[in-house]
Design a protein around this nucleic acid. Sequence first.
DNA 1: AATCAAAATGTAAACGTTTAGACTTTAATC
DNA 2: GATTAAAGTCTAAACGTTTACATTTTGATT
Lengths: 334, 334
Amino acid sequence: MATIKDVAKKAGVSTATVSRVVNNGPKVGDKTRARVLAIMAQLGYHPNENARALVTKKSQSLGVVIPDLTDPFFASLANGVDKIARQNNMQLLLSTGSISEESERQAISFLLERRCESIVVHSKKLSDQEIIEFANKIPGLVLIDRFIQEIADKCIWLDNEEGGKIAARHLLSLGHKQLACISSRYQIDDPALRFKGFKNELTESGLSLLAHHFVEDEPNLQGGEVATQKLLASDTKFDAIFVYNDAMAIGAISTLEDNGFKVPLDVSVIGFDDVLLSRYSRPKLTTLHYPIEEMAEFAAQLALGKIAAPATEQGNGHKYIPRLVKRESTSLKT
Amino acid sequence: MATIKDVAKKAGVSTATVSRVVNNGPKVGDKTRARVLAIMAQLGYHPNENARALVTKKSQSLGVVIPDLTDPFFASLANGVDKIARQNNMQLLLSTGSISEESERQAISFLLERRCESIVVHSKKLSDQEIIEFANKIPGLVLIDRFIQEIADKCIWLDNEEGGKIAARHLLSLGHKQLACISSRYQIDDPALRFKGFKNELTESGLSLLAHHFVEDEPNLQGGEVATQKLLASDTKFDAIFVYNDAMAIGAISTLEDNGFKVPLDVSVIGFDDVLLSRYSRPKLTTLHYPIEEMAEFAAQLALGKIAAPATEQGNGHKYIPRLVKRESTSLKT
DNA sequence: AATCAAAATGTAAACGTTTAGACTTTAATC
DNA sequence: GATTAAAGTCTAAACGTTTACATTTTGATT
């Protein structure tokens, strides 16, 4: 693989001159530039980014840390970051690590070792403390889908609680009174917040949630099916379900119909996230849109320092509100 | 950011010794190792991978080139590569580039500049010639989802034609005789090959495809819907459809049911790819499994030289055969 | 022809590592 | 206590760039 020296020698100039040509530097004569360019092409020269990064202390890369790529939600996140990377002619460094606290730490360390100065991090396992430490070490680190007071202006997050409220308001406005919930069995913040908001809104309307109308399971299609069976087994009526995410909601609808319930005629179902799936299901799913790609793009810009970090409104960081997407799985109580 | 020199100075040893500690090298005393380790932790030292890559000429990274991440198919591909990267403690370098020939070239160049020595490439736009050139320049380059004779043993691909045959055999075995096809409007090899295999198989059984039973549209949900409308408009009967991919197939089913046809009772539908979606649709989709993640893992291992490249059977490179997944959208002709 | 500023080009140090090879210490053997 | 092999440690060059600064060339002005 040809180096800058090879090019310099063959062109009869110094490496400095070649470097200037490569970087479109200013002080180089036209004929020289042409000659060097020709030789570069001839030799198939590609500058060594590692050497460059070493001396300039800039890595020309944009990092992103997510649990894994198979989940379309995270794929969208990564895609948002990638979009910004491409816009800025930077290389995307993707680090996956979810299974454990240790692997999240590893994922960030990997990027640190490559001196990646702008990183969008999605982390659920690392402690607030450790994230704050990383953030102090890396000025261009931003945190997505999580809020930590101490680094508020580096946090891009969704107001899950408000999402729960919006779902509740929607179902109430359709005249439903006997509500049920299907949640994720994993004790992370997201489900807790969503259902907190949901319940609070019910309370405000003088309604409440029966204990056996709140069930939990795996946050996927099967989990939704199992959870719905539990709900049906409890033998008390419900006319609407707020489900933790779209995959579970689709599982729920499937089980409901297998048991003779029409959606939305007999039971309205509302999901959360608005993943691709929700537009492919029948009936098409009413859900809350989680603008993850948009958030990821914003996060990436912020990490790159492209955004004059706007005074964060009352120390809330950069908060997004989910938007109700009415489709076919909810309807007026009949 | 602390460097190896800072650590060396503080520990009162040479950088060579610190380097040996960092790399778990052999010749270093126990007390020294302990002291250096302590100081590294205290200083929050992270070795600079760029400097390392420069001197060792090894980048500890695994590259992957795909069109984009939002398509679950490519996300799975990337995920397979990432899995191998993690297993080998390497960083994934993801380069997207699909829109144009130029951006595919860019994507590969990016990786080249980072001296990434193992790359899994998905490319549809670059010419055979150019890919061969890249492959010669980068010994660890492998090509996925495409076959080029000259670099056969670096190609990992799916036999699309055989897939078409399998689909045809399946539908014929169910007793269907009036077959229709929905294809992608994009003139790349994949659809052409799939339908070539399909038609050949029909011919062998003495059947043929009516011209207006072959329609094309965008390879997505809407495209499937539109294509099906065209099919229905032609007003000739068909009892089974072979659809280019799962997304289109789901759109097709949706339109069929809207028009009073039951799937699979009135019409059997078979898709291709076996994406997540196909398990979520109702009826669950019968389709051909495209083992892309498995192929990607294999490709990554091959790129890393972890696999003693098995003598490729009759110069076909590494060929995979799609597998029929019978679910609910096809059934015996009633 | 001499002068000079501007433009073009070159020199050399620096970036943070790794790793031969040289040197020093340790401890076992006589 | 001398000898020696092994174990531990250090020195210094190298990797491929960029870039301040120095030097040379160019061409206009006198």
